[in-house]
Simulated scan of single mutants.
Amino acid sequence: MNATQALKLLKENGYKHTKQRIRLLELLDKQEQYLSVKHLWGDFQVDFPGASYDTVYRNLYTLSELGILETTTLDGEKHFRFHCETDGHHHHFICTTCGKSNAIDICPMDAVTDQLPEHQIEHHTFEVYGKCPSCM
């Protein structure tokens, strides 16, 4: 996903292309790691000094609900990044220092499903946290 694809998806879902949304998408497009609302808000305020933290927060959650952004929680705080373009079902390794992520192409759900034969699993997430080689 990138800013151009995100704007198209927003329009398809009836959302306007506001200057604030466009700027948020540009900020996210420049990064390859998960970013906190606080981090994005700091950069966002350069162009929109009167904008509230809630404005950034609401827009990020809207983008997440539309599948434009992925979320994770680091140190008790939500972090966001563009939905990665890896084909098919996958999970992530996420660096707890810099927020960069790598796709993991294996899924532990086969083992879990075998242990819960009469259960209907509707959704799951699997993320591995640690330090990337650059941050060690």
Rank of each mutant, 00 (worst) to 15 (best):
V46R: 10
D75T: 08
N2I: 08
K16M: 12
C132D: 11
V46T: 09
K131A: 15
H90W: 00
I22H: 03
Q115K: 08
V128R: 13
N13M: 12
V37F: 03
L25G: 02
G99A: 10
S64I: 01
A3D: 15
Q5F: 09
C132T: 09
K131D: 15
T96K: 09
C135T: 07
I68N: 01
L60A: 07
L9E: 06
V112E: 12
H39I: 06
K8S: 14
R23A: 07
E32G: 15
L69D: 02
N13I: 13
Y15F: 15
W41Q: 08
G14S: 14
H123D: 15
K8D: 14
G67H: 03
L69Y: 03
F126D: 11
S64T: 05
D29T: 01
P133N: 02
D75I: 02
E32H: 14
G42D: 04
L9Y: 06
R58A: 00
S101A: 05
H39M: 09
P117L: 02
Q31R: 01
M136Q: 03
E70M: 01
H92P: 11
Y15M: 15
E85C: 08
V46L: 06
Y34K: 04
G50F: 02
Y129M: 10
I94H: 05
V128T: 14
A6F: 04
L7W: 06
Y34Q: 05
H79C: 09
H119I: 12
I94E: 09
H91L: 02
L27P: 00
E32V: 10
C107P: 06
T4Y: 13
H89L: 11
G130C: 09
K30F: 14
G50R: 04
Q115D: 08
S101P: 01
L25D: 03
L7H: 07
A103H: 13
V37W: 00
P133W: 02
G76Y: 05
L7A: 13
F93I: 04
E118V: 01
L63M: 03
K30H: 12
V112I: 15
M136S: 04
T18D: 03
H119Q: 13
F80P: 09
K131W: 10
G130F: 09
Q33S: 05
Q115S: 11
F93V: 06
N102Q: 06
K19W: 12
I68A: 02
H39T: 07
G99K: 04
H83V: 08
E118S: 13
L10A: 04
D47C: 14
